[in-house]
Amino acid sequence: MGNDKWITSIIELEQISKKYQMGEVCVAALDSISLHVTPGEFLVVLGPSGSGKTTLLNLIGALDTATSGYICIGGQRITQMTRPERFRYRREMVSFIFQSFNLFPGLTAMENVQFGMESAERKANGATAQGVLRQVGLESRLHHFPHQLSGGEQQRVAIARALATGNPILLADEPTGELDFKTGIQILELLHEQSHNGKTVLIVTHNREIARVADRVIELSSGHIVSDGVPENHHATIADLSW
């Protein structure tokens, strides 16, 4: 790998720490973590509750700031960014997919997708939004509000919204956490497809099964990376998964 990883990495973390002061106790959510991710990689971050995986996702998404260390995403050093720069970074570089979907309940499926385009300052025309929704199999649910959709459909809309931004990095926090197995598999397929389309997909989960289809798996424990590499039984297909 050598210098190549520096040239090809879209996500670079060096000696990143995140510490919280809880009363008199200082808790390290992440402790001197270094990580490099290449474009188009399908990366799964595994770990139990409190291992620091969501903190890692938030730091990469510039939702939170590191206590120390260096983060460079797509050539931009986000650890040194001002607040407005971090907002712009989120508009241009990353898109989030949340466990509870976080769709706007007052907007229809198509409007939620259009919102994603608008937030990334892309022209939010209906045809493009419909196209993205067709990509996730929701062409018949364009004008439905979130409360009129099933959980799986809502998560598809959330993915469509993230895709509609056109940003190169997808950050997914437990994207199948609230879904049944069958729907979860469908969502996973969708995300997997995105990495084939050139997007870098980073999924945070505690579900080891998901890790089986990843290009690379990082396991966190108590704020440290305890393993980093290709998953066991690499080349397992989504059809092989069960939970």
């Binding site: 998404g61 939702l63 508009r91 949340f98 976080n102 309940p105 937030s119």
Partner: peptide, 12 residues
Amino acid sequence: REIATMFAFGMR
């Protein structure tokens, strides 16, 4: 939560 989502998408 909606506003936080907007912020997550970089909305000012």
